[in-house]
Amino acid sequence: MEKCYMCDRQATSREHVPPKCLFPEGKDMDGENHRSNLITVPSCDLHNTAKSRDDEFLMVSLAGIIGNNSIGYRHKFGKVNKAIRRSANKLLLATFKGKQRFYVVEVGPNKFVDVIWGTPDSERLKVCFEHIVHGLHFHHFGHTFKGRIKLHFAYLWSDNKNATSFRDLIKAKLDVELAGRDKFGENQGVFYYQITDRDQFDLYMFRLCFYGGINVHAAMIPEHADVQKDLAWMLVEGGIKTIFNVGDKKFEFN
Rank of each mutant, 00 (worst) to 15 (best):
S165I: 09
D45A: 08
K79F: 11
G238W: 13
A50Q: 15
K27P: 02
C209A: 07
E252M: 10
K183C: 00
I39Q: 06
L169R: 02
D199S: 13
S158F: 14
L125R: 09
N110C: 07
M29Q: 04
K79Q: 10
I214D: 03
F210L: 03
A218R: 12
L58R: 05
H134Y: 15
V127P: 02
S165W: 02
I66P: 04
E56R: 15
Y5R: 13
F251C: 05
Q100N: 04
G147T: 06
H139E: 10
F153E: 01
E177L: 07
L38S: 11
K99D: 15
M6D: 02
D45Q: 12
Y192T: 03
V133E: 04
T95M: 06
F112P: 00
D114W: 05
E186W: 06
L151N: 01
A83R: 09
S52Y: 01
L38T: 05
F210M: 03
I132T: 11
E123K: 13
S70Y: 08
D175H: 04
P19L: 10
R101E: 11
N68F: 00
A172F: 07
A218P: 09
R124C: 07
T164K: 14
G239P: 08
A63N: 11
M59C: 14
K250T: 02
I170L: 06
Y204D: 05
P222E: 05
A63R: 11
H143A: 14
E123T: 08
P109Q: 13
R101F: 09
D121C: 13
F191L: 11
E186N: 05
V80Y: 00
L136D: 07
Q100H: 14
D54T: 14
H143P: 04
A83H: 07
R207S: 01
A163T: 09
Q188N: 13
F138M: 01
D55W: 04
V80W: 01
V113N: 04
V115G: 03
L208K: 03
G108N: 09
I149E: 01
R9A: 10
